[in-house]
Amino acid sequence: MSTGAVLYAGAIGLFLIGCYAMVAERHLIRNILGLVLVESGVNLLLVAVGFRENAAAPILKAGQSAGMMVDPLPQALVLTAIVIGFGVLALALALVVRVHQAYGTLDTREVARLMRVEREASGPGAAGPRAGAKS
């Protein structure tokens, strides 16, 4: 099996595992880990797109033409994507902390149920701008 094929298989595999974690797991942290896996898979895919068998690192030195190098652009993209993913991950974890503070659980269905209960309780009568909502 060529390196490229391994790369693609790994990328797709990571992606699928991540998807499974996001869909099937009920724990928010696991969902987020799934998201991380999905992102890794996609990043790997991007790298694989730019990969060339037996090519050199994309550093322009004397005597090396662009065609002999690995495509550098996807790598730059992946760098950016990793940074973005990191930011999103941090924000997600921060939100998880707040959700846990508010609901005392990280079970997705439980959180969804509590949110619905809360919304319906704040329905007729008790309605009005909620606490802390500065609009």
Partner: peptide, 11 residues
Amino acid sequence: FRVAYTPLYML
């Protein structure tokens, strides 16, 4: 929309 866990829909 209410019941499901939506990433599933996306996929």
